[in-house]
Write a protein that binds this DNA or RNA. Structure first.
Lengths: 263, 263
DNA sequence: CTAATAGTGTCTATTAGACAGTATGTT
DNA sequence: AACATACTGTCTAATAGACACTATTAG
């Protein structure tokens, strides 16, 4: 900790001009899981980028992604969490920008809402090989892919760094944002109730399991899965019929204060 | 995703002047565990703050905390990870600043190194009551405390927000930084090898357990503890004697590629 | 010998994985 | 009846908690 003994000394500390100008932006990555398209995300000149924009001087950093999302998708009141702040010197060739990326999750029913004319939802595919993740994005007219290597920064695997190994179509370091967003979601699904932001009010356990399987990119055993999510969900009186097989009970998310610790 | 169809449109997006000026700083929170002082961290006009400074326009955001740490403590090559980016409009009364906080871990042997004359190491104590964490900082001449409430932002406990409920001595939102840093360390110790950044090259398992107990703020059962860390550490030929009891074997950290997955 | 911490063995409780089985709709 | 998915029971494997026990030094 540091203390300041004089006004002069304190103000010196705040002479930012000598360091030159740095601008701040926020970028938003939106994920959703739907039936037709296994994984989605919401994404430069003739290139693509995640929606983003400059933080206004009278705007809370966390409000910036909300504003962007409202402008681009007309979605309000949706889940947002800070993902990471990127500050490479040359990440933007035009000017020095530090950008905070946000991860957003929406349920598939909200995907049908209009996005702005220059924007589009992309389908996301992922393959892994030798520590290199190749991500394929499929839009209505375009399809492109990029690769990101996740490498240990030191021999002890303390810190991982993400590096873009192949990318032709995504601006800035948005390939990193996407790769980190996938990892964050995949990790967090295991120790939080974050997944329910991607679910509608009522859902079947089969649907919920499919969302888990899509995100984790592997199949799960039903009995184990049901045990794990058992006290996060609650049966309703409603039933989903007409699917050519035994109908399934519709469940709703049970908020944490209702979840029992015993049985 | 968004695409840009014209140069004009793209550049419009980059007209940052209309939003006014926002500056970027980095703050560093340093933790260490030593015998004499259970937990340490490295910390305004007549108030205290974490060491911090403006990001230079030709400096990588991640390099800024390294520079600050070198200036303040002369420590180089130590563990740093990004903690969170704070962007409240009025977090600094003088000017609009967005600040990225970094968490740093050092082993106790490095604590003896000199810190700059205005800086000091503080001992950290923590008590919990009704979701409110009260943190006590004890320096060589001063002692003060502050309280932070960790509350669920929605009924579903999806998102937590940290709020300062009592604080007289810490500048900006540095009370939040400290509370979040503790939580991060406490969580991450369970699923990563991060703790070994706080250990010297050679250590006894008793010492390692004490570090865990200090960070987790609870006592652990020795056999269980040893099972958990068993394949993260490796016996050496060296033994620590002269402690008035059975001497203990000195261990070293075994990096991840050496850790066996079977037995 | 005592105090004090080092270090191990083992029983039990809890949780996760695996798979077989039953239930109930649509066509 | 055939099919397809919903849903449950239960054995087994792996892991975590608890506690008793032995080991080895300083003084």
């Amino acid at each position: 900790m540091t203390s300041y003994h004089s006004e002069r000394e304190f103000l010196d500390h705040y002479n930012s001009d000598e360091y030159g100008r740095v601008s701040v932006t926020a970028d938003v990555l939106v994920f959703s899981v739907s039936n037709e398209e296994p994984d989605n995300y919401y994404p430069f000149k003739d290139m693509w980028c995640l929606p983003g924009g400059f933080v206004a001087s009278d705007e809370h950093l966390d409000d910036c992604p909300k504003r962007i999302l409202k402008n681009e998708t007309n979605l309000t009141n949706i889940y947002l969490e800070q993902l990471y702040t990127f500050g490479h010197v040359n990440r933007d060739p035009r000017m020095r920008i530090v950008s905070t990326a946000y991860l957003s999750l929406v349920n598939k029913n909200l995907l049908s809402q209009s996005v702005s004319e220059n924007s589009e939802w992309f389908n996301l595919g992922e393959t892994q090989a030798d520590g290199v993740t190749t991500i394929t994005l499929t839009g209505s007219k375009t399809e492109f892919e990029f690769s990101v290597a996740k490498t240990a920064q030191d021999k002890n695997h303390f810190q991982y760094s993400y590096q873009i190994t192949e990318n032709k179509h995504l601006a800035f370091d948005h390939a990193l944002v996407i790769a980190m967003g996938i990892d964050r979601l995949r990790n967090k699904i295991g120790y939080s109730d974050i997944v329910f932001h991607m679910m509608p009010q009522l859902f079947t356990l089969g649907e919920l399991q499919q969302v888990y399987e899509t995100i984790l990119n592997k199949s799960l055993l039903t009995p184990s899965f049901r045990r794990i999510i058992a006290n996060k969900v609650e049966k309703t009186e409603q039933i989903q019929k007409g699917k050519g097989h035994r109908p399934s009970v519709l469940f709703r998310y049970k908020s944490k204060n209702e979840q029992s610790t015993d049985f």
